[in-house]
Design a protein around this nucleic acid. Structure first.
Lengths: 261, 261
DNA sequence: CGTGCCAGGTGCCAT
DNA sequence: ATGGCACTTGGCACG
């Protein structure tokens, strides 16, 4: 990686430096004092202050304040970034077509610009996604209940996708909704919709519904009982442990959240 | 704003530079080659590559790849950032207590570090938030329906908050759920829950429910009809225009999305 | 602190 | 493009 720092003495010079980064598709970081206008799906104004502006090679623009995780303004993958100097301000407009949105950054002062070309071909591996947990449970349904058999995964029904479509040891249809974090009322209602949809096709059968999650909110549990559904707690860190040990990787799950309820 | 660039010749030197930024609560940008481990609510690994790492004064950590809006790994407001050199790698651990999560960045090479103190006391003004739209509609309920009267805003009921609690010209209770973007099935179900909750208290009254949004998904509209609820389209850009003209600011709504359906 | 809910949510994948 | 849904969602307000 090569990083180049610039300290432009004028806004005109800054324009050239920024334009160079855009055409050569470099990653750029700008430290400057600016005001910002955004209009599109929403609209916002940000009055003057020092900010960190990142422009990536795909045209993504991020404006960061000195605190907080989220950028205060942004533009994901803009088609077009235009530059100009107007009334002593360097104006950067990042335009996006769908949805039609514009981010306008007006710099009154630019302190530093850095250019860099990052060689990043790293692989990003994610564990413990809902998909991984679903996959594990579909192959190990007895984790949920002894005698359970998986019939279908991600089964399409009218209102959406059923995570696991199973039968229990008594032959009843069991519909399972998996959540990797605390299950909310929304999850319970989602499950209810699936059951109602399946009931249409098999009006005589008894259909069970189980929310499978590491924990559940109080009101969601009440709703579960009211709707005659069930809740089954699972231990996410336990699943993680099993999966990782199989994959011959050392286990590092000291921080994996333990479920509480 | 003052920006200082460092090009540490060793990882030990880099540790000192980073520590200095942390103790003096500066904003720091690190260009380096690293591998990353994350464990907490989820878990992930990122193999070696060049990245941009931002550490803010509140301990937020962002790891950016050369493309895309979202950071590949992050930590929002960590309690604790520790540094060490292990096996020729600079290890930065950002710990968060609730939820318990750890982000471990292992740098094999650090190219550049920049420190900066940003003077950002700018005011961020957001327009067209659901709150602003709700406020407007509560004061101008006839936008939704002639003769509608607002009784309560953000009324607390058991399942949550009712956006607008109104009565129509015939004295019927009308519960309104506002969405600033396309209303989904979730929005409809949310409204249904509120109506059921209110019905408990007034079992004899006819209670109407209206989804108010610039557009609605096809399946959500079907659900609306099935549940005998209503949908009323509103023109967001029109509301924006009225609000802005009142606030004596020039209107800049060329980019404000026009609703379609 | 948990629970609920908005967000310019973003991202991924399906039709 | 639209829709349905997960996300280390983040963020805020409220009990």
């Amino acid at each position: 990686m090569k990083v180049i720092h610039y300290n432009p003495s004028s806004l005109e010079e800054a324009v050239k430096i920024i334009r160079d980064a855009l055409t050569s598709k470099k990653l750029m970081v700008i430290y400057g004092c600016c005001t910002i206008i955004y209009e599109g799906r929403g609209a916002s104004r940000l009055t003057q202050g020092d900010r960190l502006v990142i422009v990536k090679r795909d045209g993504s623009v991020l404006v960061h304040r000195p605190f907080g995780y989220s950028p205060v303004n942004w533009q994901p993958e803009t088609t077009d970034i235009s530059l100009s100097v107007e009334n002593g301000e360097l104006v950067m407009k990042a335009l996006r077509l769908t949805p039609r949105e514009i981010l306008e950054i007006r710099f009154t002062k630019i302190y530093t610009i850095t250019h860099a070309i990052l060689d990043d071909r790293g692989e990003f591996i994610e564990y413990l996604s809902e998909e991984e947990i679903r996959d594990y449970l579909s192959k190990n349904p007895s984790t949920i209940e002894e005698g359970l058999i998986t019939i279908d995964v991600e089964k399409r029904v009218e209102p959406g996708f059923i995570d696991l479509y199973c039968r229990d040891r008594n032959g009843n249809v069991v519909i399972i909704e998996i959540k990797r974090t605390t299950a909310s009322k929304d999850a319970v209602l989602q499950l209810k919709r699936y059951i109602d949809a399946v009931k249409k096709y098999m009006p005589r059968e008894r259909i069970r519904g189980i929310i499978v999650a590491p924990s559940i909110s109080k009101s969601a549990l009440e709703l579960t009982e009211k709707l005659k559904l069930e809740y089954k707690r699972i231990d996410i860190s336990q699943i993680y442990k099993v999966l990782r040990s199989r994959q011959r990787g050392k286990s590092l799950l000291h921080y994996i959240g333990k479920a509480k309820s």
